[in-house]
């Protein structure tokens, strides 16, 4: 009631002008450079896959809510753009040579099973987009084989025959094959085989800076993740710093670090918890890459997402006004 003088409301009394819907629209905008670069590099098929995954993600959320007996108008009014972001990310994290139905299955799995069954936006246990990507990877990878080289400026060696990315050749312990690609190619994604949205690192970084400037994500956390991954790869390869740039500029690390690992729902609540989370992500990513010669960013994120409740249990936020009581020296 608007005309009531005394208002009662439950606990979140401090309000932020940012709504979930606005934040998610900003994330969509931040994804746009990478989407456009993906379509430029991989052609019409990329556009088809992206639109299929986007439409099926949004449609499956609507269908689920309609089954839950909500009216169409109410759903449209409450619609936050999280499922758009999920759909786009699922589409961006697969290659163009996947069958056309793969993104649909991935999106539907991500939205219905991972998000809606657990209670909708903000209640999911793990990141829907990451899980959707893993679902597609486990289901259709055998059909696909190697990744596709984009149609601009193809360079031989951009695609190692069986591996997902150049990482496979790079991390082979016995005879490491350094890529014929320069770090510039890796940054721009020209001539590089890979997923639609993750070859052009510059576009992803631009999106990340956009989000950081708007205060939507804390840029420190993705930087921690990327830096730890690079440094641990260097350390695992006998402190050869030639590995640093290729390690951080290849594979899905940028996409995962900027857009997937920073999901609000699946990160810890405290600063210390977040630092633990992102350092662990980096260590797991670099270690598993070294061990499996596969791209493991999505698996690392899924794995660490499951650790978030545990981190939140042990790293508690300081209550307002709390000061640490200093222990006297010599006290046991």
């Amino acid at each position: 009631m608007a005309d009531r003088l005394l208002k009662f409301s439950s606990s979140p009394h401090v309000k932020s002008p940012k709504t979930t819907r606005q934040i998610m629209i900003h994330v969509c905008i931040a994804l746009m450079p990478a989407v456009i670069m993906g379509i430029v590099l991989f052609g019409g098929m990329a556009a088809l896959i992206l639109s299929l995954s986007l439409v099926s993600a949004v449609a499956s959320e609507f269908v689920y809510l309609l089954i839950c007996k909500k009216s169409f108008r109410q759903i449209a009014r409450e619609f936050d753009f999280t499922s758009c972001v999920t759909g786009l990310l699922v589409g961006m994290s697969i290659g163009v040579n996947y069958p056309w139905y793969a993104p649909i299955f991935g999106s539907v799995f991500a939205i219905i099973v991972v998000k809606m069954i657990f209670g909708g936006t903000g209640k999911n246990l793990v990141n829907p987009a990451v899980t959707g990507r893993i679902f597609i990877f486990m289901s259709f990878q055998a059909m696909v084989g190697a990744w596709v080289i984009p149609n601009i400026n193809s360079i031989t060696g951009g695609q190692i025959n069986s591996g997902a990315t150049i990482l496979g050749g790079l991390l082979d312990a016995k005879n490491p094959t350094f890529p014929t690609l320069s770090n510039w190619d890796l940054l721009l994604g020209t001539g590089l085989a890979g997923c639609i949205g993750e070859t052009c690192k510059l576009a992803l970084i631009l999106g990340g800076i956009y989000l950081a400037v708007l205060g939507i994500i804390n840029i420190g956390y993705p930087v921690i993740y990327v830096a730890v991954t690079g440094l641990f790869t260097v350390a695992l390869n006998g402190f050869n710093f030639g590995y640093f740039l290729p390690a951080i500029l290849s594979g899905g690390l940028m996409l995962g670090a900027i857009f997937m690992a920073t999901d609000y729902t699946t990160t810890p609540n405290t600063t210390l918890g977040n630092i633990i989370y992102f350092v662990m992500l980096g260590l797991i990513t670099a270690g598993l890459r070294q061990a499996t010669h596969m791209e493991v960013v999505s698996f690392a994120i899924l794995f660490m997402n499951l650790f978030v409740p545990l981190i939140d249990k042990f790293v508690l936020p300081n209550p307002f006004g709390y000061k640490k009581i200093k222990k006297a020296k010599g006290a046991k």
Binding site: F105, V113, F135, M138, S139, F140, Q141, A142
Partner: peptide
């Protein structure tokens, strides 16, 4: 037509 996820062990838990 196959969805490989369901014949994997993760699929069995699911």
């Amino acid at each position: 037509f196959q969805i490989g996820f369901f014949s994997s062990s993760a699929g069995s838990f699911f």
